[in-house]
Nucleic acid binder design. Structure first.
Lengths: 143, 143
DNA sequence: AATAAAAAAGATATGTATGTCCGAAATATG
DNA sequence: CATATTTCGGACATACATATCTTTTTTATT
């Protein structure tokens, strides 16, 4: 479904959303350990998330990664799109160029309502929304 | 969602279902051209489909790939499972080991209907079912 | 100013999916 | 039986995602 990179990034951002704030920054190493992803690899993804203004960071001592209020309002879909691109949920599951509502592939009708609801859920729910669900014990992460 | 190999295999099998029968076999080259996939690559996939009794083949002049009546009754999911394995629809989208209905990850509820729709569509429809839909112009392939 | 801590950046390595090539085996046809 | 046609099987090549390593830049602290 998602690439490993997307899975890692989603986990890392949710971990940040729950554990960090402006004064409490988190080291790449700590995120790496918390979500069980190689440090150098997650560090690269975190850097790219910063470049795309999805998360924030500060260098040097007392530095680390964190989320601003603006970051917390970013829709989850942005993380997926940054890595796997915008086509993931939009292109035909069979890879057909000309598949659409008018000329659907054999799977199209059977899945598109559910696909669409997934897409809108990721578009309309922010990082904070998902973090809140976890805080309220409606959903869970390993840590 | 699906690997390229799965997309290719699904397309190739549906093309066979529509265009071949016991007396009218189809060359790997023709399938390759029809679905726009490299010949050597689709040939490998076709061989594996034969080994798994999902399609049939005959060597030599007048040979080629085709479907028996038994082949046509194979559920589409078998093609996906042969290549991408059975975990594709079952493992957590975030890669979490302990994600389940009782303790769902933040994406679990959002993604379940989509996955379920895809899984059941592939489990309960045979190769022939999809081919019929196409013959009846309820759904479409490029050719 | 010197030091240490941390992210950022670039270069490199590994692994897996994807794609290609060539020879062997099977079979219909003349 | 010889030949042509086709799948089959193994080895090889390439590209991309994944992962690692090293150096540079930034910044707080002393």
């Amino acid at each position: 479904m998602f690439s490993n990179s997307v899975k890692y990034a989603l986990n890392a951002v949710l971990y940040l959303a729950i554990n960090a704030n402006g004064s409490q920054k988190i080291l790449a190493r700590d995120i790496s350990e918390a979500i069980a992803v190689p440090k150098a690899y997650i560090a690269k993804l975190l850097q790219e998330l910063v470049r795309h203004n999805i998360i924030s960071s500060e260098r040097g001592p007392k530095g680390g990664f964190y989320l601003t209020e603006a970051n917390r309002k970013v829709p989850m879909i942005k993380i997926v799109e940054m890595i796997d691109g915008e086509e993931l949920f939009k292109s035909c599951v069979l890879g057909l160029e000309h598949c659409n509502e008018a000329k659907p592939c054999p799977l199209h009708e059977k899945i598109s309502p559910y696909r669409w609801s997934l897409l809108t859920a990721l578009e309309f729910n922010t990082i904070q929304d998902f973090a809140d669900e976890i805080s309220e014990h409606k959903s869970y992460l390993p840590q």
